[in-house]
């Protein structure tokens, strides 16, 4: 794991806000915003996996979708190899699609049920004129890479199990030899015994092709297994980020601590349990000051009034008034 400090960023994000308007009435006036994503700064180096972890509704998926161009941010900058994606023309964006791919959570709904695997995995290649040899040959090579049989290419998505479907999704994602893949909960829908296989496959491909991943998951154990660095998200903001080992073993933010404490780990007795009270507030009416103050066990007066600034030790960053 060579390059965790910001050295060769493939992705860099500054002051990114993805807000969805709430419209009411006959004239559908905008009466407010759902502040799904509000990220001050984040980067991913070449060959690095950044794990993005948080609970449902924290904005992690919206961030992934924004990065891939599926959602439009309200403001902000997103650099891919130093170029602001938001400034690109349609043609430049099309070129960029080759380099950036996405793997979705639900392996079935993300595959067209009326296309066979051959068409699914080579569609992008055909579009960009990148097929080497015959279409069949190229598809078979991709099957080999993701550990599926050659004749899988003549079958349809419904004929496969969940784990195999996710392998097809991965084959499609790597077909154009991208540099960066957004993995949005890629193993959450899979059985435990199959999860590990798919995580291993993603790790192998990363090492073979020097891929960078944004690995989005609600499952801290899964994230810690594959990520070099981890960012913890709460209510649209990043509250802590750093090397996986630092964030897990030396977590600073009370939310990260509670999140880690809540993960039941077989064979591991917990000394004391932190049970957070209440639930995540609505992103349409975020609390004042620190986003987490409504549930924080260590809340102070200042947390209600003022937004915490970033504190850094090395590349371990935390947004909390305690530090």
């Amino acid at each position: 794991m060579s390059n965790q400090i910001k050295k060769y960023p493939i992705i860099e994000v500054n002051n990114l806000k993805t807000w969805f308007p709430i419209k009411r009435g006959v004239l559908s006036r905008t009466v407010g915003y759902i502040r799904a994503v509000d990220i001050a700064g984040l980067y991913i180096n070449r060959g690095e996996t950044l794990g993005l972890v948080g609970e449902s509704g924290c904005g992690k998926t919206t961030f992934g979708r924004t990065l891939s161009g599926l959602e439009k941010p309200r403001t902000g900058e997103m650099f891919f190899y130093g170029k602001n994606i938001l400034d690109l023309s349609r043609r430049e964006l099309r070129e960029l699609r080759k380099k950036m791919q996405i793997i979705f959570q639900d392996p079935l709904s993300s595959l067209n049920p009326r296309m066979n695997v051959l068409d699914i995995v080579t569609e992008g290649l055909a579009e960009f004129g990148k097929i080497e040899g015959t279409r069949e040959d190229h598809a078979k090579r991709l099957m080999n890479e993701v550990g599926l049989d050659n004749d899988a290419i003549y079958r349809y998505p419904h004929e496969f199990s969940g784990g195999q479907r996710q392998r097809i999704n991965i084959a499609r994602a790597i077909a154009l030899r991208p540099d960066f893949i957004i993995c949005d909960e890629p193993v959450s829908a899979l059985d435990v015994s199959v999860q590990a296989q798919v995580i291993n496959l993603l790790m192998d491909l990363r090492d073979t092709y020097n891929l960078s991943y944004l690995f989005i998951s609600h499952d801290l154990s899964v994230v810690s297994a594959i990520s070099n660095r981890v960012a913890v998200m709460y209510l649209g903001r990043i509250v802590e980020s750093g090397l996986t080992g630092d964030v897990i073993n030396n977590s600073k933010h009370p939310y990260t601590k509670a999140l880690i404490n809540a993960v039941p780990e077989p064979g591991h007795y917990q000394k004391e349990r932190i049970v957070l009270k209440g639930e995540m507030p609505s992103p349409s009416a975020p609390p004042s000051g620190c986003m987490f103050h409504t549930r924080c066990p260590e809340v102070m007066e200042i947390c209600r009034k003022q937004e915490p600034k970033e504190t850094m030790s090395g590349i371990h960053q935390v947004w909390c008034h305690l530090y």
Binding site: T49, S221, N228, T244, E265
Partner: peptide, 10 residues
């Protein structure tokens, strides 16, 4: 096969 909560990616 269950991933452990730890910093050692492997």
């Amino acid at each position: 096969s269950i991933p452990k909560l730890s910093g050692n990616a492997g």
